[in-house]
Design a protein around this nucleic acid. Sequence first.
DNA 1: ACCTGAACACCGTTCAAGT
DNA 2: ACCTGAACACCGTTCAAGT
Lengths: 218, 218
Amino acid sequence: MTKRRTDGLSKELIVKAAKELLDDGGETALTFRALTTHLTTGYGAIYHHVANKSDLLAAATDDVIASVMTGVVVDAEPREALRTVALGLFDAIDAHPWVGAQLSREPWRPALLAVYERIGGLLDALGVPERALFDAAGALVNYVLGVAGQNAANARVLTLGEADRSAFLAKVAAQWADLDPERYPFVHKASAQLREHDDRDQFLAGVDIFLAGIATLR
Amino acid sequence: MTKRRTDGLSKELIVKAAKELLDDGGETALTFRALTTHLTTGYGAIYHHVANKSDLLAAATDDVIASVMTGVVVDAEPREALRTVALGLFDAIDAHPWVGAQLSREPWRPALLAVYERIGGLLDALGVPERALFDAAGALVNYVLGVAGQNAANARVLTLGEADRSAFLAKVAAQWADLDPERYPFVHKASAQLREHDDRDQFLAGVDIFLAGIATLR
DNA sequence: ACCTGAACACCGTTCAAGT
DNA sequence: ACCTGAACACCGTTCAAGT
């Protein structure tokens, strides 16, 4: 009954609106009701362009990953390029935490395909022998997505309730420190480092451990 | 109006029922309605023992991980024990795919704490220098959970629609093979290995790459 | 203290009807 | 072909009322 859209709707427009809702309010903010308001349209119009919510989330994820994959410069030598690509993914998922949960859902989607291609290609350029290339790429991709997803989960918790990162870390670190050193020697000892650590640095340290391990495959 | 429970309800009983629903029907099968039927009780009775659905999922996850951590034998030398623990987690998440999505949600929960303690302790026993221990443990835990989660996502897809694993892998491998070798040289080449690979073996190969990388930190 | 179940405020998705 | 919005079949959660 209200006025009809004059400009045509499209999947791109819907995905763009979905990304805005997700970035602003997290995964729970993406509802078809919010979308219809945002786009001043009806449910059917949206369903005419996307199959369902899952399809919409996947398309939004593809979008974010694709822009990382095309945006990152890789004219550096393979080792440095790998670190750059990994950091690019880390930062993108940090900026769009909802991507983290999505990536592990449908590994055959364009998003992950591009990631495998880029990382596999760079490992090849690094001189990893062909027989080990598939396993090495799989392991590295999974590490990158695993950490990034975990980090995104933390980011989600922070935006929801907690005041700020350092206060949150201090709280968890205090819990770790309070644990019985007899039963939890490692976690107890690690509490100080937990409080002070930088997620990005630790992520990169892991990438380096990986690359060092891969170097032994030669 | 129907007859009242005579035996008392408890959080343990609720968590047990939740695990059964999750194992049988996946994440979507866990609803409070299904729980009330399963336990022949009302909503309020459940909410009297658990705070909300998220709390219930976390408790069920803690349960699964705890039984892996106590069940796995670790009198082997550290390197072998690490592989055993990693495989135990992999198999548990494979058997309970819903755990995969949960683990990355609240890293300060008992479940992840126990994992960090075990893996950190074994890395310590392996001789990783103290300054590198925190980063190494973080990286390895994230790798293990990342792969396991990804694997669980695949398992979820398989139980939902696809006939069987090899048919599914063959389909995705065919898609990879069809890609333009100019644009996707790595993925195109890797399609044969994708079709034939064993998830468990590839997972262990990744753990070994990691341990090799960690060995260089000495 | 523990349990019951109607009710509330949401969801995703469908579909007859419009242009 | 594309869009509208009422309606349907679900959710998680609350809460007055019971024992």
